[in-house]
């Protein structure tokens, strides 16, 4: 059962602020979808290996050779806020 507390917990893990007014709506929607995907519990998967990669491609490497990095102009072209060659964010520890 997806309670408001569960929605709150999941939202905080996901770093999403959810207004209290929306908790039960999201909870209901999640509940619906989870109920549907619970269909999978009908399957006997005890001897089935999981598929995380669809094809058995293995051992893809790059060699340890240096490639050009972004120029400082490029590296900060999209920065929300920067200061003295650094990306700037609100203080982390208050």
């Amino acid at each position: 059962m997806i309670t408001n507390d569960t929605v709150k917990y999941i939202a905080s893990l996901s770093r999403l602020h959810i207004d209290d007014a929306d908790l039960s709506r999201f909870g209901g929607e999640l509940q619906n979808i989870l109920q549907y995907v619970d269909k999978l519990s009908e399957l006997d998967v005890s001897n089935v290996p999981p598929t995380s990669h669809v094809f058995r491609v293995e051992n893809v490497f790059r060699e340890d050779t240096i490639l050009p990095s972004l120029s400082p102009v490029e590296a900060f072209s999209f920065a929300i806020e920067s200061h003295d060659g650094h990306y700037k964010v609100p203080k982390v520890i208050e």
């Binding site: 569960t6 999941i10 999201f26 399957l43 089935v48 999981p50 995380s52």
Partner: peptide, 28 residues
């Protein structure tokens, strides 16, 4: 938001096996 929360839920502690891992097996 729904998908992010759903995805977070199915990977979270206690639900990984029941949802995510099971889905990887169903995928097989």
């Amino acid at each position: 938001k729904r998908r992010i929360m759903l995805g977070t839920y199915v990977l979270s502690a206690g639900y990984y096996d029941a949802y995510y891992l099971r889905a990887l097996k169903a995928r097989t």
